[in-house]
Nucleic acid binder design. Structure first.
Lengths: 219, 219
DNA sequence: TCCTGTGAACCGCTTCACAGCT
DNA sequence: AGCTGTGAAGCGGTTCACAGGA
């Protein structure tokens, strides 16, 4: 299964779930393409990796497709998630309601600040980072979310790896070093803004190099 | 300039800035590759798009390279940023300190909730979304950050577009429809987790189709 | 010798175009 | 007629491999 396809399936799933709520039962690859912001051929090729679940001349059945994607993404049992670093962002994620019902459950939150340890965010008690490895191992944490300051990120990542966590989502503005068997995804607000800044500058005609370069884009 | 290169330059910049703080003056493409988590040939090719600023047999001069990347990304003047939707995430972003000094300044925050309007986050007053278009236009907002609930996202996006904002960073879990001249970037926590979930499942040997696949990634 | 800069090969993903089924 | 599923072409990006300069 191509990496690019894996990255799009959740987007399809999101769109399909909304259609399902609206009692829409069938849609074409073209419909789904518009909802997901991609090409229709792309949709058909992606879905073909799940098997041949469409009906020629008709389209795809919404609920059935949802089940197939869920199956492929493995959203069957709940996955245990730990949040490391309870700053503004950590709190925001902990309160995010898109976890449960999508197959994820936050089972632990850690912080280095003794002031915070013992308090809780929602129903989740904040524990000391010193206990991270043991607690994560015990609660079978599958996914670690790193929202610490950048100086602490690599250290807590090492501890997560020690606890056999093989999937890490990092919000700290550093490139983490992890063993090859660990899947890492990086979200960096500053980087996103700088990328946008580049295109914004192009669009406003203030490009640095050479003469008037025509820039356009539609991510 | 290839889109993929634009997306990596901010990462190089981040790494170089830290080296600069540590008074390191020179580095090789190999060094930078490790810091950025990419291949050394990649680094050289990317940097070649800026011009030939390396010295054969030696490497690149850190501070000079920083200036060149800054120039290319256009981090010279400050860009005005507006945050729309002051929930947990909006607040987290507003308090994020990576803006100033990286060429970005938050000049406005909006919310639909009358309870919140009139209060402020940090030094930024929260204004009513009904005033969004006018305020953004007046303050020459270049980048809009959407952190509203998903039902409100498309509407506020339309207003941002009306205000001539051509760069939008969306955290709401919907695919926004925008005109072709608008650059859009999407960050969806739920999607990120589901992608990780897929690879985690593969790694733990519970894959649906076929045998054990070795997953690795360093997005 | 060391490291950059870059043509060329390679690779994966996207898109096209159409055969095939309903 | 309509829409899927897919071989094949096209495209952008990555990596290789090495010429060339310090």
């Amino acid at each position: 299964m191509p990496e690019a396809t894996v990255a799009r399936l959740p987007v399809y799933l999101r769109a399909l779930s909304e259609l399902s709520n609206e009692r829409i039962t069938t849609l074409s690859s073209e419909d789904l393409a518009v909802l997901a912001g991609v090409n229709a051929a792309q949709v058909r090729k992606d879905l073909s990796h799940l098997g041949s679940y469409g009906v020629r001349g008709v389209g795809y059945e919404v609920d059935y497709l949802i089940r197939q994607i869920n199956r492929e993404l493995g959203l069957t049992g709940d996955r245990a998630v730990a949040i490391v670093g309870v700053g503004n962002l950590g709190r925001a994620l902990a309160n995010y309601d898109g976890f449960r019902g999508r197959g994820f459950e936050i089972v632990a939150a850690f912080d280095a600040d003794p002031e915070k340890v013992g308090r809780s965010i929602g129903a989740i008690p904040i524990e000391a980072v010193s206990t991270l490895t043991e607690v994560c191992r015990r609660r079978k944490v599958a996914i670690g979310v790193v929202t610490t300051p950048k100086n602490a990120a690599q250290e807590v990542t090492d501890r997560l790896v020690d606890a056999s966590v093989v999937s890490i989502l990092n919000f700290a503005p550093v490139v983490l070093q992890v063993p090859a068997h660990v899947t890492l995804r990086q979200v960096d607000l500053g980087v996103e803004l700088q990328i946008l800044g580049f295109y914004e500058r192009q669009a406003s005609g203030l490009a640095a190099a050479g003469g008037g370069r025509e820039a356009l884009d539609a991510g």
